[in-house]
């Protein structure tokens, strides 16, 4: 494919559908902070009750994610950062966009393995997602790795949105680009805070009890 189209597709997929899914995911997680286990499980159920779920997952998440991720690694490889010589904030964000992209790529593989793949393998159920996350977040080391992952993903999303507006010719002049960067950086902070609060919420005893309760059920049944 011609480089222009492949790059344009990469840019589009980053926002639609991936950016939208990212926001949706952050909101579902935030349910854990706002309303605890019940609210989080209701969010999970809402998604799982969608018709043609497999098609939505593949068409709106997995395929766009694989394309955006793999092509993004190539874009990162092509860069030759010169931040030592040009210490401008936009140039730093150019570098961070690539670094956070690579971090997010690795992080998502890990995160999907621990959640969606475990579900597919039948090791956990949808109702156990909350307790699975609880078990991860109570370990300080893993909590910090997740923290790096979600903050990177949030920055990559928000700053990528800024670039998207430039790359599609929506924000043209310097003032429009400045205002858009204020909005996008606010979005970065907002989504990061939401995700970190959800992570803290998952550490709560309520999510642990779910496993304890399930363990009791399991032991009774066996």
């Amino acid at each position: 494919m011609n480089g222009y189209y492949s790059r344009k597709l990469h840019s589009l997929l980053g926002v639609i559908p991936l950016g939208l899914f990212f926001i949706e995911h952050a909101l579902t997680n935030f349910g854990a902070f706002e309303g605890g286990l019940a609210r989080f499980n209701a969010g999970v159920k809402l998604i799982n009750d969608l018709p043609l779920l497999w098609l939505l997952e593949w068409g709106l998440i997995y395929l766009p994610l694989i394309y955006h991720g793999v092509f993004g690694l190539y874009i990162a490889y092509q860069a030759k950062p010169n931040n030592g010589r040009f210490q401008y904030s936009r140039n730093w964000r150019y570098l961070f966009q690539r670094i956070t992209g690579v971090i997010t790529f690795v992080y998502i593989i890990w995160h999907v393995y621990e959640t969606r793949i475990q579900l597919a393998l039948g090791n956990i159920t949808h109702e156990q997602l909350g307790s699975t996350m609880h078990d991860i977040f109570v370990q300080p080391g893993l909590f910090i790795l997740y923290l790096i992952g979600v903050v990177s993903a949030s920055f990559h999303f928000a700053n990528g949105l800024w670039s998207f507006f430039v790359s599609w010719g929506i924000t043209v002049g310097p003032r429009a680009q400045r205002v858009s960067s204020y909005i996008c950086m606010t979005l970065f902070v907002l989504v990061s805070v939401m995700l970190v609060l959800s992570m803290i919420a998952f550490r709560g005893a309520e999510f642990q009890e779910a496993t304890a309760w399930l363990d009791t059920v399991k032991s009774v049944l066996s």
Binding site: Y4, R7, K8, F86, Y88, R90, N91, S163, V166
Partner: peptide
Amino acid sequence: IEGCGNSQN
């Protein structure tokens, strides 16, 4: 034009 990475240097 796709080569632009918006570093704005």
